[in-house]
Simulated assay, not measured.
Amino acid sequence: MSLDNHEELQKFIDLSEHYRTYLDEHDNSRPDGRSFSQMRPVQILDNFLQHSYGSSMIRFGNTTVICSITGQLTKPSLKSLRSGFIQTVVLLPRTQAWSTYGRRQQIINENLTLSQNLLDIIYKSKLINLEDLCIEEGKWVWCLQIDFQCLNNDGNLFDSCLFALNVALRHTSFPTVKVDPDTQKPLVYTKDLQNLEYNKEQQPLCCTIAVYDSAQEYQYLIDPTLEEETIAKSLLHYVLLKNDQICLIHKTSGAPFSPEKFHHCYSLARDYILQLRSKLNQQN
C-alpha cells in the first residue's frame, strides 16, 4: 500500500480519526463514495449446491455468504413427539477466524451470537413450523441443519445471512420419507422430492446501522463495511417482517438511545428492507 497520499496515511495511522474527519467534512458521503443510506450492490445465486436440499450464495458488496440447508433423520424429543429440530451455524473465513491479531476469541463469540440470533429469528417469526418437520409422530422427525459459510467478510454479515436464508428456503425440497411398518425404520426416496413448508408471508429481513458520534450529531450508515463496523460507536440491528412488524432489535454497546432516535432508525431500516424485499421478490 502506498502511503504517499495524506488521506491514506491518516487512514493507516488512525482509522477511527480518518472516518470521523471524513464524515465531518463531507455532507452525507462516505469514504467509499456511497451516501449514508445507500446499500452496496446485491448479487444472488440460488440452488447451486448439488448435495444440499436448498442453497444460495449472496454478495453484499464484497461480503459473500453461502447458505446451505440439509436434513438428518432423528428421533423426536420426549417433550414434543411431533416437533423436529433446527440448528444454525455461522462460519467465518478461516483466515479471519484464526487471525493472530488477538481477535480469535472475539470472532468466535460473534459467530456464536449471530448463529443464536438467526435461530431466534426463525422461531420468533414462525418462519418454519417445527411440526412440519415431523415424519411420523413419536418415531421420526427431520433435524434441519442451516449452515452459513462466509467466504469473505466485509461487513453487514447479519443482513447477508438472513437474506441468504430467505433465498435458500424458496428452493428447498426434501426427499420423501416413509416408515417401514415392520422394522419401524425410515425409507428414504431421494427421487421423490417435496418442497419444505415454511411461512412465506413472514420473510424476516435485517437492516444493520452503524452509528457514529460526529461533531454535529449522531450519523447513521446503512449497510456498513467491516471498517465502518469496527470503528462505529455502536451497531443497531432491526429485523422486520413482511408487514413491517419488528421481530428483533439489537444494539451493541454505546451511549443510550432515546425513543426518538430508535424511531428514526426504524424509518431508515424500513426503507432499506423495502429495497431488499424488492430484490428478493425479483427471484420469483
Results as ranks from 00 to 15, higher is better:
279 K>Q: 15
118 L>S: 03
172 T>K: 00
220 Y>W: 00
90 V>D: 04
110 E>S: 06
2 S>Q: 15
103 R>C: 05
282 Q>V: 12
208 T>C: 12
283 Q>G: 11
214 S>M: 09
177 V>F: 02
14 D>S: 14
161 C>D: 13
18 H>F: 15
135 I>N: 00
101 Y>F: 01
218 Y>G: 11
119 L>R: 06
45 L>N: 13
187 L>T: 13
211 V>R: 01
53 Y>K: 04
65 V>E: 09
173 S>G: 06
219 Q>E: 11
114 L>C: 06
260 E>D: 14
57 M>D: 03
168 A>W: 04
129 N>T: 12
64 T>P: 09
34 R>L: 01
224 P>A: 08
283 Q>P: 12
63 T>H: 07
55 S>T: 01
235 L>C: 07
122 I>C: 04
94 R>T: 13
239 V>S: 03
8 E>T: 14
204 P>C: 05
62 N>C: 14
92 L>F: 12
53 Y>S: 08
72 Q>Y: 08
129 N>I: 07
248 L>S: 06
1 M>L: 12
14 D>W: 10
228 E>R: 05
274 L>W: 15
31 P>G: 11
141 V>I: 06
279 K>A: 13
155 G>H: 05
109 N>L: 04
243 N>D: 15
106 Q>D: 07
103 R>S: 12
232 A>Y: 01
267 S>N: 14
26 H>L: 12
118 L>I: 08
70 T>P: 00
234 S>K: 05
205 L>V: 07
55 S>F: 01
217 E>N: 09
120 D>E: 03
192 D>H: 08
40 R>D: 01
138 G>L: 06
7 E>F: 11
193 L>D: 02
62 N>Y: 09
149 Q>E: 15
18 H>V: 03
175 P>K: 01
54 G>V: 01
253 S>A: 15
70 T>R: 02
211 V>K: 02
92 L>H: 06
160 S>K: 06
137 E>L: 11
39 M>N: 10
143 C>D: 02
200 K>Y: 04
118 L>R: 13
20 R>D: 12
43 Q>H: 14
90 V>Y: 10
34 R>N: 02
82 R>W: 03
79 K>G: 05
168 A>R: 03
61 G>D: 10
172 T>L: 00
90 V>F: 08
267 S>Q: 14
163 F>H: 05
267 S>T: 14
243 N>C: 11
